[in-house]
């Protein structure tokens, strides 16, 4: 049971950043902009969030009110991610530049900038930012002590519990509601499917696309921080390709919030299995092979490809995604 709790807990832990970022990708694409810059946005968001946590730690007040500090860090990560995404919006929406190229530029910029900045702040060669241990939510936060032999639920919940997890679930529900139940969602979706139709009834396509991409940046930034706390070894100016993975998750989830949730957990589960492969009794061990965990690491990617083969025929990608909207052209 212990291993099951660990597996499930880790799946949620690693699923959360994928979920957040894929939801971000969804908002951008539903408004008609392909956000290939998610990887870079994650890094910039994580950088901002981690720098804040670092200063809260150095200032000494973080340890006293850890979850307040974490909450502020999450907001900062989101806001900075959103601000960074404006660079993409400007190029893609106003200047109608190639969205893939714009996204590539942002992805190139983000890790380099993170290294240069952390180097400048922490001194030469010190490019990793340590995350204070107090950000983890423990039993103590709820006023009781850790059990001597923690049961299934205690393990599941408290082994690696960060504020990013509940916030991600709130944001998932909020995404669903915004997309399907509000005026904003209706208008946003119309811009991703048929921008001319939206414009003909007086909706500003530019504005909607800016909103979509900015939400995307906000979620991407938080996702970056969520990734960094989950990875556990501090901020290293990278998110290990999670931004790109999130795009695959989004496609896998057919641009729909609830399916994206399922897809991100599915993906995270296979990611986690690869690192636990040695301790899961029923999995083959490949005893003659060195580093057999590489086999398990391939699985989520291979499975994604297989799924894409079967789903691409009935893909529900927004029709106008990636196409710049020209006011004059009709």
């Amino acid at each position: 049971m212990r291993i099951a709790a660990d597996l499930l807990g880790s799946t949620i832990l690693f699923g959360v950043p994928l979920l957040l970022v894929a939801l971000g990708g969804m908002f951008a694409e539903r408004s008609g902009v392909i956000n290939l810059a998610l990887e870079g946005i994650m890094i910039i968001g994580a950088l901002a969030g981690c720098l804040f946590l670092r200063s809260a730690n150095l200032g000494g007040w973080g340890v006293n009110s850890p979850q307040t500090a974490m909450f502020i860090a999450i907001i900062i990560a989101g806001v900075i991610g959103a601000v960074f995404s404006l660079l993409l919006s400007f190029a893609a929406i106003n200047l109608k530049a190639n969205q893939t190229i714009g996204g590539t530029a942002l992805n190139q910029f983000a890790p380099a900038f993170a290294v240069v900045l952390t180097w400048a702040i922490q001194g030469q060669g010190q490019t990793s930012i340590t995350i204070p241990t107090w950000v983890r939510i423990t039993q103590a936060n709820f006023g009781f002590a850790q059990s001597a032999s923690p049961g299934f639920f205690e393990n599941l919940i408290f082994k690696s519990f960060y504020l990013t997890t509940p916030i991600a679930f709130i944001l998932l529900i909020a995404s669903y509601v915004i997309l399907y139940k509000t005026k904003l969602g209706l208008r946003l979706r119309s811009c991703g499917e048929h921008p001319q139709a939206a414009a003909s009834v007086g909706i500003s396509v530019y504005k909607m696309r800016y909103i979509g991409t900015t939400i995307s940046g906000f979620l991407g930034g938080i996702g970056g921080l969520a990734f960094t706390v989950a990875a556990g070894s501090g901020f290293q100016s990278t998110v290990a390709g999670y931004g790109f993975l999130a795009l695959a998750v989004m496609i896998f989830g057919n641009w729909k919030p609830l399916s994206i949730f399922g897809a991100s957990m599915f993906f995270a589960f296979f990611k986690v299995i690869s690192s636990y492969s040695g301790s899961i009794p029923f999995l083959p061990k490949f005893e003659n092979i060195t580093n057999s965990s590489y086999i398990y690491q391939c699985i989520p990617y291979v499975v994604t490809m297989l799924v894409l083969i079967f789903t691409s025929k009935r893909s529900q990608a927004p029709l106008a995604e990636g196409q710049p909207y020209d006011k004059g052209q009709r």
Partner: peptide, 12 residues
């Protein structure tokens, strides 16, 4: 209704 939605607090 697109573009001329009836809403309450942003909700359709």
């Amino acid at each position: 209704i697109l573009g001329a939605e009836t809403v309450r607090g942003g909700f359709l």
